[in-house]
């Protein structure tokens, strides 16, 4: 695979594991959360205390799994990726203004998406634990906690629809899915979408 010159390596095993752990937990949390949220689903499914437990236990499992992947995985690689996601150069800034410029390993839109995804994960966790703990200690119950949790759900849903469209449907970008599953992508595709990255890595 790595030896095949037609392909370039895009995501390490650690990165792919992290992505799919995050994505799986997100879907379970979204589904169980919607059952708690939408009256029609609440009626259909019933068993609210059970669904609540599923939601909360998935949240715990998600945090533990993320921590494990980071602890056991290639941390140096993750730090490098983080630095790449953080840095916006002149081309990125122009790209965000819809000017076509060559992009690095992640385009500027992906960098923004990654920053939002990370911030939302933190905010989901804080608001979710406040919902849970506030039920046990009323000093930690705030009228706005549930609004934050619900608002995050709506905004994440919009991001997710865009993300899935680009990853699964839009012909120009859906080859990326190969990178997130097998780890590598076609060199010619990468040159077209992430030229500065391929040029750098050779």
């Amino acid at each position: 695979m790595a030896s095949d010159p037609r392909y370039v390596r895009r995501f390490s095993r650690t990165e792919r594991t992290l992505h799919w752990v995050h994505a799986s937990a997100f879907f379970v949390l979204l589904a169980s959360g919607l059952i708690l949220y939408l009256p029609s689903l609440s009626e259909l499914v019933g068993r609210r205390p059970f669904v609540k437990d599923v939601h909360f236990d998935t949240a715990l499992a998600w945090l533990v799994a993320i921590a494990l992947v980071v602890a056991l995985g290639d941390r140096r690689g993750l730090r490098r990726t983080l630095a790449e996601l953080d840095a916006f150069d002149e081309d990125d800034r122009l790209w965000l203004r819809r000017i076509d410029r060559p992009q690095g390993r992640f385009n500027a839109g992906q960098k923004v998406n990654a920053a939002l995804t990370a911030a939302f994960a933190l905010l989901f966790t804080v608001s979710g634990f406040l919902l849970w703990y506030g039920e046990r200690d009323h000093r930690f119950r705030f009228a706005s906690t549930i609004l934050l949790h619900d608002g995050l759900m709506y905004v994440s849903l919009v991001l997710l629809v865009g993300h899935l469209y680009l990853a699964l449907i839009y012909p120009a970008t859906r080859h990326a899915l190969r990178g997130m599953t097998t780890g590598s992508v076609r060199r010619d595709w990468a040159l077209q979408h992430h030229r500065k990255w391929v040029d750098e890595d050779g």
């Binding site: 953080d86 840095a87 916006f88 990125d92 960098k111 923004v112 920053a115 990370a118």
Partner: peptide, 14 residues
């Protein structure tokens, strides 16, 4: 890299 890089990633996050 051409031009100056800025840490918009962490800024967005924060």
């Amino acid at each position: 890299s051409p031009g100056e890089t800025r840490r918009y990633g962490r800024r967005t996050f924060l």
